[in-house]
Design a protein around this nucleic acid. Structure first.
Lengths: 122, 122
DNA sequence: GGTTGACTTTGAGTGGGCTCGAACTGGAAG
DNA sequence: CTTCCAGTTCGAGCCCACTCAAAGTCAACC
């Protein structure tokens, strides 16, 4: 039912170090412990971590993730604020995709040019 | 015709610090100097820097950019190698875009859910 | 000809995000 | 029981990509 820190790390694609560090940094609320004081991750904990990894890899700074986590802990009264954070972040991600697509064009152009130059040299 | 370091920085969207650092790191070959030893950037220098900024913001590590710069300095014999670097990088950028688009879906879903929850609370 | 201000170099410092070493603890297998 | 392994905490260390402070130089303007 619950998982150890290393199982959780495996599942979400982070290291055990990072999992503990996320907790310490307040990105995750204190995880439940077994009788020996070892962390036990529930599916809910995992879901939350997976969401964090999405935010993280879309470029959200840890500082903003912490702010979001704090809001989430405060309950329903912060729903609108959290939605706004996501909307703002969605805009950034969209811009980022657009930027990458522009850069992709440059890469394609360069590849084409290199290809032609190689031909000419033969 | 040529530009000072601060003009070049302005044009390419980097700081003067970063421009000098890129040169020091071998991402840019030594820039020409005026009689007083001050850097003078040509349009070619700018074009190269602009390409570097594209590579950089698509996530290419400085270490790889340096390798690419070294190949470029070696001349036409490295055309194929450079093309391969770009092709590999293009693949990474494409994957990155795909990943971001997946994450965007999650964001959209979350925004929707938050919206609905807000409605229900009123 | 003095002041200003943008340049020069060198080496040190910063911030973000982990990553790890050390010392310890507790439960399970032989 | 003892050995082993996966945990624990704490603080330190690391890597990357800049960023800046200090001390000096030089051309341009008043």
């Amino acid at each position: 039912m619950t998982m150890t820190v290393s199982e959780a790390a495996e599942q979400v694609g982070l290291t055990t170090y990072t999992l503990r560090w996320y907790e310490q940094e307040g990105l995750v609320e204190p995880v439940g412990r077994d009788s020996a004081g070892r962390r036990r991750y529930t599916q809910q904990d995992l879901d939350w971590l997976i969401l964090l990894t999405r935010l993280r890899r879309t470029g959200m700074p840890v500082r903003d993730m912490r702010q979001y986590a704090e809001l989430a802990r405060e309950g329903d009264s912060t729903l609108a604020a959290r939605r706004q954070i996501f909307e703002a972040h969605r805009d950034r991600v969209r811009s980022r995709i657009a930027e990458l697509e522009e850069d992709l064009k440059v890469l394609n152009y360069k590849i084409e040019v290199y290809g032609k130059m190689e031909q000419e040299l033969c």
